[in-house]
């Protein structure tokens, strides 16, 4: 018997063992994810700097966003990370149907997240909170359309409506860029998972080979991590 005859069909010729092949895949995926960390990192940098420069505008603009939708989406997305982890686990222990089921659950939760995002974006358009010529945050002499705590009211009163209408646009520009790019990553993730689910359904994975499930899991968890930072930074700056 020649050793090659018993090779797993998924083992590429440049690797000696399946574990070596998997370790290379994990390392390569992390190298990619770290470029993504720095990609989003640049935006977080811009956010930090502008938040320091236009503190009051950032607090007030953040307070105008409804916490409920952001909180719901946080629960949905962290829940989808759990179902993704369970999909990988099912593949590891040879449970084909459970793998498919958990992957579908992850895609459903991802779609719910995007649906909530659509509701939120529509709300911003309706209230003229989208940067551009139609933008209007505070009408001079009018009450704001959102609830403010005593500290928020203090900040509102020490800034003119005119300056807030200028500076809060910076917050919303970052809001749309960051959540938009995050949503784009989720759309790519769901597309990726469609392929992986089909492969899982066809019985391509087993405890000996489930690398594609694990890799798409890494991608999905990364997208979850970005949201873990976006939620407090965009929705929860200061509600007091």
């Amino acid at each position: 018997m020649h050793a090659h005859a018993a090779h797993h069909p998924a083992l590429q010729h440049q690797f000696q063992t399946m574990s070596q092949q998997k370790e290379s895949a994990v390392l390569g995926m992390w190298a990619f994810l770290l470029t993504e960390v720095l990609f989003f990192g640049g935006l977080f940098m811009a956010y930090m700097l502008y938040r320091t420069w236009y503190h009051d505008a950032f607090v007030l603009a953040s307070t105008s966003i409804t916490i409920f939708w952001g909180l719901l989406n946080t629960v949905v997305l962290i829940g989808s990370s759990l179902t993704m982890a369970l999909a990988v686990r099912s593949a590891q222990i040879n449970q084909r149907k459970a793998t498919v089921m958990w992957l579908i659950a992850t895609m459903v939760l991802g779609t719910v997240f995007l649906g909530v995002k659509v509701i939120e974006y529509a709300d911003k358009f309706e209230h003229h909170h989208v940067p551009g010529p139609e933008y209007a945050f505070i009408e001079p002499g009018h009450e704001p359309i959102f609830e403010l705590g005593p500290h928020g009211r203090e900040l509102l009163e020490r800034n003119s409506a005119e300056s807030l209408n200028r500076t809060t646009q910076i917050f919303f520009s970052l809001y749309f860029t960051m959540t938009g790019l995050h949503a784009l990553h989720m759309i790519i993730g769901i597309g990726l998972m469609c392929v992986i689910t089909w492969m899982a359904w066809k019985g391509r994975f087993s405890s000996e080979y489930y690398t594609p499930v694990e890799m798409s899991g890494l991608y999905w968890h990364f997208v979850d991590i970005v949201w873990i930072f976006l939620f407090p930074l965009l929705y929860l700056i200061d509600r007091s």
Partner: peptide, 18 residues
């Protein structure tokens, strides 16, 4: 064969408990 099997077993990786 044993080396191969070892490689395959290592492949299944750590299965985290529910």
């Amino acid at each position: 064969t044993m080396q191969l099997r070892h490689g395959l077993l290592a492949m299944s990786g750590h299965v985290t408990s529910l």
